[in-house]
Amino acid sequence: MRIRLAAALSAVAATALLISGCAGAGNPSASPSPSASSSCLLDAKPGKTSDAVKVEGEGKDLKVTVPSGTDVDAAASVERTIVKKGDGEEVKSGDLVSAQYRIVNAADNTVLDSSARQADDQLPVLLDPQQQSLFVVALGCQPLGSSVVMAVPGKMFGDGGKAVVVYAQSIKKLPTVATGKDVAPVDGMPGVKLAKDGAPEITIPKADPPTETKIAQLKQGDGPTVASGDQAIVQYRGVTWADGKEFDSSWKRGTPAQFPTTGVVAGFKKALEGQKVGSQVLVVIPPADGYGAQASGSIPANSTLVFVIDILGTVPAATPAQ
């Protein structure tokens, strides 16, 4: 469901302008991503405030400055100036891209968040309007490789909101399936067969389910390691052990999902943390590490859950750049 820009940006402001909001606690499907769409959330136009912003330097030396006297709050709406036009395909909602960015307080140029906290000054960005509205507006409807400056008046964040300026550049599209090396199956675990698009088909063995969480790698990635509290970007499919019926799937929604490792059930958290980007993980979660004796949506009470998870990216918890 498309949400209003003001509401979306308010959600970002409420989390100190981190690059994503929080998904619903304990359920990967609690904040489902919309299907990919070529439509623009807001095709913002340039204005005198966004045109005035200075971008200097490269890599980690890149600096964004709002000149003294520039009143971002005077703008009628969000303004976006294209600093450089890329030559790739158009970036749209639902895409997963690597990006360089800076988000600064328009009043004093304090850096609120920055991709410079990653060694290569790039972080994965899932262009989900429900969680990443700031970046959907900044990068959407422009060719891959474009860099932009976006001026956002404080009123877009609701009462008491502070104006910000965003610099962002889309670097490249990232895989939406696990790309790691195949790992031999583990005896006793459910069988997994991948469709041409990478979606997993899961076959439950004719046996009693395990009484503790079991994790097996299907593919071994070589990217960054998912740490506790990171925002994990994943594709996943979940079925119940009892009957093999699907209860949730990012594949069915048509785009990856993103949520904090601390915002999902214990078994799913165990399957994510410590894994490298590019890995595909199979996890069997007994009720104690799942939803226990409570039903959740289409999941019956006391269900053992089975997930296949493709780990596509991880975003460390943000800290203000120095």
Rank of each mutant, 00 (worst) to 15 (best):
M1A: 13
M1P: 15
M1Q: 12
R4Q: 05
A8C: 08
L9M: 06
V12I: 13
T15H: 14
A16G: 05
L18M: 06
P32Y: 02
P32V: 04
S37T: 13
S38D: 15
S38G: 10
S39F: 14
C40M: 02
C40V: 08
L42K: 01
L42A: 09
D43F: 07
A44P: 06
A44R: 02
G47T: 02
V53K: 13
K54D: 11
E58H: 13
K60F: 08
D61Y: 07
G69M: 11
T70H: 04
V72C: 03
A74N: 08
V78H: 00
E79H: 04
T81M: 03
G86F: 01
E89V: 06
K92A: 02
D95W: 15
S98C: 09
A99N: 08
A99M: 11
Q100R: 15
D108C: 01
N109L: 03
L112P: 00
D113L: 13
A116K: 15
R117W: 07
A119N: 14
D120G: 09
D120P: 05
D121R: 04
D121V: 12
Q122S: 14
Q122A: 15
V125H: 08
P129W: 09
Q130T: 13
Q130I: 12
S133P: 11
S133N: 14
F135R: 02
V136G: 06
V136E: 03
V137W: 08
V137M: 00
S147I: 09
A151V: 00
F157Y: 00
F157T: 02
D159N: 00
G160D: 01
A163L: 03
V164P: 10
V164C: 12
Y167P: 09
L174M: 15
P175S: 07
T176G: 08
T179P: 01
D182S: 11
D187W: 10
P190Y: 04
K193P: 05
A195M: 12
A195W: 14
K196C: 09
G198S: 01
A199I: 13
A199C: 09
P200N: 08
P200Y: 01
P200K: 01
T203E: 06
I204H: 05
P205D: 03
K206D: 05
A207N: 04
T211C: 00
P224T: 02
P224Y: 05
T225L: 07
D230P: 08
I233T: 04
R237K: 13
G238R: 09
V239A: 04
V239K: 03
A242T: 02
G244Y: 07
K245S: 15
S249Y: 10
S249P: 02
S250G: 06
W251R: 07
K252Y: 01
Q258G: 13
G263E: 14
A266P: 14
G267D: 12
F268D: 10
K270P: 10
L272W: 01
Q275P: 00
S279Y: 06
Q280Y: 06
V281G: 11
L282N: 10
P286E: 06
A288Q: 10
A293N: 08
A295I: 06
S296P: 03
S296A: 09
I299E: 11
S303E: 10
V306K: 00
D310H: 08
I311E: 07
I311V: 14
I311R: 01
L312D: 10
P320R: 12
